[in-house]
Write a protein that binds this DNA or RNA. Structure first.
Length: 480
RNA sequence: CGGGGCGUGGCGCAGUUCGGUAGCGCACCUGCUUUGGGAGCAGGGGGUCGCCGGUUCAAAUCCGGCCGCCCCGACCA
């Protein structure tokens, strides 16, 4: 059992914080709700960024950067937008030693300032679609911060696009939801459920919001990414119009979509175990760690020669590898040290291995002595990419199984009430309720409608709250 | 903002009941011995006890006020 890490079965929230501390992902800041992302944690974020940024560019988007400070009046233009964000705004009232004419809002999101610019840049249907993305920080004064999951300031990417008509904009909304879904599955190894948000849960200012919902280790849901169809809501208040081919003014139809550093929290909570972090190889800052073992100087020299050549070979294959040749620290300590940090593959090389022409290998997703295996020195460098790929797939399979085993179908409210308490997880239920039904359900059970999955079953059934016959199934769960 | 808990070396805590000038574990530094699952011994450095005020010969400890943090809820990426 890992030292200094609470058992997740016993206290999941404490476990989460312990892992963040022990794996050196983040530290708390002097300002409440803010956090310092430490190099190891930031490196995970950089890998997330690199992967998504490539996908955004593949789908035709360009990066830009809009300012942190937004005139307060901008936020107030779109009625629902203000209502949604007003309580959590940080507002700058003074600058240069003087009270400002108009207060400035630190962006909670950039729809308004971007529309301000879109209205200048977009004149003709030939300017469309406009496909932008920005990597930025935003500030939302949330009441209850949690490291990575909900911090006052957080890093994210926000895509903003403008299209000639609803159909294209809706297509874009779903295209980006798919990009997020693929990223979650294939890179983060987190099986998410893509779906639409209910009226109650949708983004302030959107016509429709879509989400990917992930299941965390305690059975709770985490909204891990969102994609919104904004309709012409912002275009109308910012006059974002274009001249169509018939020489008529039209409002643009818009989308916005984002994922944040919350994804780092998702990775921790979806994959972590009682020994700490577990990272899917594609996101791991260190994919392979090599622990050289030697009793004396001559053995060490011999071992290090081999280790160096292995490292060079792996680096040539673009594998992120680290050699832990710290002195005065026992191998056992190092094994645990790297396990807490979630490194997918560890190689141990000592004199005994050299004699036998192999290395000992240990996969983070199968920790402990019993599951160690040997790889011959001859084939090591060539076989490592395949092993990492295998680990990546195994982690996704494990996560899928974990989710399946905690996904339940219930037919009536009583079963749900009992289930959500005794067996936290995703509850797939027939649903025909409205916002008030949702509010009531949340009051009673703390659970919410996480999403209306895009993939719907055949047939119909009776709504769990209204009893009406419906063709719609939703996912109910407790959420972060 | 409601409920609960807590502020004492970097981290985790004891000491507060019953005032007497600060201690333990881990971490850190030095040396020697060690190194295949969190090494051992010896020596060492580091704390105006959250802040302000009061009582007292004397306050981590008692009294008054303030501040902050964490966890649980409502809100959210």
């Amino acid at each position: 059992m890992a030292k200094n890490i609470t058992n997740p079965e016993k206290d999941f929230a404490k476990w989460y914080q312990d892992v963040i501390r022990e794996a050196e992902l983040a530290d708390s800041a002097p300002v409440r709700g803010c956090m310092i992302i430490r190099p190891y944690g930031y490196s995970i974020w950089e890998n997330i960024q690199a992967s998504l940024d490539a996908s955004f560019k593949e789908t035709g988007h360009k990066n830009a950067y809009f300012p942190l400070l937004i005139p307060e009046s901008f936020i107030k233009r779109e009625a629902q937008h203000v209502e949604g964000f007003a309580p959590e705004l940080a507002i700058v009232t003074h600058g240069g030693g003087k009270k400002l004419e108009e207060p400035l809002v630190i962006r909670p999101t950039s729809e308004t300032i971007i529309n301000h610019m879109f209205s200048k840049w977009i004149n003709s249907y030939r300017d469309l679609p406009m496909l932008l993305n920005q990597w930025a920080n935003v500030v939302r004064w949330e009441m209850r911060p949690r490291a990575f999951l909900r911090t006052t300031e957080f890093l994210w990417q926000e895509g903003h696009t403008a299209h000639a008509n609803e159909e294209e904009a809706r297509e874009e909304t779903l295209r980006m939801l798919k990009v997020y879904t693929d990223f979650a599955m294939n890179v983060a190894a987190i099986p998410v459920i893509p779906g639409r948000k209910t009226e109650r849960e949708k983004f302030a200012g959107a016509v429709d919001s879509y989400t990917i919902e992930a299941m965390m280790g305690n059975g709770w849901a985490l909204q891990s990414g969102t994609s919104h169809y904004l309709g012409t809501n912002f275009a109308r208040v910012f006059d974002t119009m274009y001249l169509d081919s018939n020489n008529e003014q039209q409002f643009v139809h818009q989308t916005s979509w984002g994922v944040s550093t919350r994804l780092v929290g998702a990775v921790i909570m979806a994959h972590g175990d009682e020994n700490g972090l577990r990272l899917p190889p594609k996101l791991a800052p260190v994919q392979v760690v090599i622990v050289p073992i030697a009793r004396d100087d001559s053995a060490r020299a011999e071992v290090l020669t081999v280790v160096d050549s292995i490292r060079d070979g792996l680096e040539k294959k673009c594998i992120r590898v680290e050699v832990d040749n710290r002195g005065g620290i026992s191998p056992g300590f190092k094994f645990n040290y790297w396990e807490v940090r979630g490194v997918p593959l560890r190689l141990e090389i000592g004199p005994r291995d050299l004699e036998e022409g192999h290395v000992m290998a240990s996969q983070r997703n199968k920790p402990g002595r019993d599951d160690k295996f040997t790889i011959s020195l001859d084939s090591l460098v060539d076989s490592t990419p395949g092993i990492l790929e295998k680990i990546q797939n195994e982690m996704l399979d494990e996560a899928i199984q974990k989710r399946e085993s905690r996904t339940y179908s219930v037919e009536n409210l009583d079963d749900f009430r009992e289930g959500i308490v005794n067996k936290p997880g995703f509850y797939s239920v027939w649903w025909d309720g409205d916002s008030e039904d949702e509010a009531r359900l949340q009051q009673e059970t703390k659970a919410t409608v996480r999403c209306i999955p895009l993939e719907q079953p055949e047939g119909s059934g009776k709504c769990i709250v209204t009893g009406r016959e419906t063709k719609t199934k939703v996912i109910l769960a407790r959420a972060y």
